[in-house]
């Protein structure tokens, strides 16, 4: 390590030179610069202290407090809005339920009304039908009665004719009785 030893020698030389130049090898131990450094350090610290404590710290703490306040307010407002939204939703749900109930009620009413009308109409129709049926039966009975009378008359006439054609003398009373008896039979 030839270069190592030479460098060490040089370092020692340099140290010696430095020691000659400034009184001590380490600049940190050069006491002639201490008053200067201490004076300027104190100036620096005082300036920083006043800049921070008079301007920066009140300003930043005010900003932080304001921000905290704003955030708290915003959170409160958000909470309020959320509650409002929940209330609105509940009202909506209630309205929906009411509307459903109303609708089903209306439907039921309409159904009942229709049913009632239907029943009346049905009754009317039934009555009309039964009236018609009775009329028709009466008409049929009349027609039948008419027909029986006609048949009786025709039968009497025919029997009278037949009897007279046979040369006999038709006894109207006997013929009628016979025809009537036959008709019944």
């Amino acid at each position: 390590m030839a270069s190592g030893t030479t460098s060490v020698e040089h370092a020692a030389d340099a140290a010696a030179h430095g020691a000659e130049a400034s009184g001590a090898g380490m600049p940190q131990l050069d006491f002639s610069t201490f008053p200067n450094q201490i004076f300027w350090l104190l100036v620096t610290l005082v300036v920083i202290y006043f800049a921070l404590s008079r301007i920066a710290i009140p300003r930043i703490s005010a900003v932080l407090a304001e921000r905290a306040g704003t955030i708290t307010n915003d959170i409160a407002a958000a909470e309020e809005l959320k509650q409002k939204a929940e209330a609105a939703e509940a009202a909506y749900q209630k309205a929906l339920v009411d509307a459903r109930a109303e609708a089903s009620r209306i439907v039921a009413e309409a159904k009942a009304e229709i049913q009632a009308e239907l029943d009346i109409e049905l009754k009317k129709a039934d009555a009309a039908i039964s009236a018609k049926t009775a009329e028709s039966e009466k008409a049929i009975a009349e027609i039948r009665a008419g027909a029986v009378k006609s048949v009786t008359a025709v039968a009497k006439d025919a029997a009278k004719e037949i009897v007279s054609a046979m040369g006999g003398k038709a006894d109207a009373k006997a013929v009628t009785a016979a025809v009537t008896a036959r008709m019944k039979g």
Partner: peptide, 8 residues
């Protein structure tokens, strides 16, 4: 070490 090297 520094003191020995440079200051003493």
């Amino acid at each position: 070490a520094l003191l020995l090297m440079f200051a003493v």
